[in-house]
Amino acid sequence: MQPSAVPAPVHRGEVSTPAAGSPRTAGAGPTPVAGPRGSAGRNDGPKEPGRARARLYRFGLGLAGVVGVIALLELVVRLGLLPEAWFPPPSEIFPAFARLVVSGELFGPVGQTLQGWVLGILAAAAVALPLGIAIGSIELAHRLTRFMLEFLRPIPPVALIPAAVLIFGSNLDMKVFLIAFGTFWPILLQTVYGIHDTDPTLRDTARSYGLPRRARLVRIVLPSALPYIATGLRIASAIGLILAITAELVVGTPGIGVSITDAQSAGDAQDVMYAWILAAGLLGFLLNGSLQAVERRVLHWHTSFRGEAR
């Protein structure tokens, strides 16, 4: 899970400084080798072979867990503890899923859901990132907007569905608007927070060394805000998927959500409905996993990203 056993502080010249000097990591002491949760890393030895074995162990156990849970579900349904009308046995759901994959039926709706997701998040990020950088680096802007941002953020984006349907109709535009609105706030707030939280000592040092404003932003402020931005994007990814599927389920814009309701109203197609639900879950799982992988690659020099909230 964790990148290299050796901290790589001198990796990109100046960029390394936020990692070493960030106020958050400073508390972890000078030996961040075992990761931020130094305590939990007790069993992962520092040697490479040990780590590989630990990873294999995790993988094997995880696989056993997946198989075990599926087997248990099958057993529970077969024994009649869980009515088959509510939940068909996994031995029917997985073949239904496989049929969707083989016939290619799966990919149209998944593509439509993904399309809305990508467009919505891109639209949100295109506005939220520059705005967040501006608000985070200009103290007056920060103070002017703080209250408003904190007020607007907890507004549930789904509350806008009726209005959005009326204004845009039940189409892709509506889905993209909804996702863009919902994902705008986490990206914006994480950016503002990350920028604003740059170690002031670092900032002052750069200024007194005469680094121009632009260089300070690109080399000091942005790198140290990057983990926050990455987290913002990951939260946005989860919210975006929820909103995409909600829009499809409630309003009927094409995508996975519609396939679920179609299968449900088809009456005798429980297994197909659960196959689509499985598809939605796998999509979320893969999106989250790939974002985390990108994050690990891009931010491996930064220690703080490893123990984030899930």
Binding site: I242, L249, Q264, G281, F285
Partner: peptide, 9 residues
């Protein structure tokens, strides 16, 4: 990771 609204049905 499963988006909860899928469980509405």
């Amino acid at each position: 990771a499963l988006p909860p609204p899928t469980l509405i049905p």
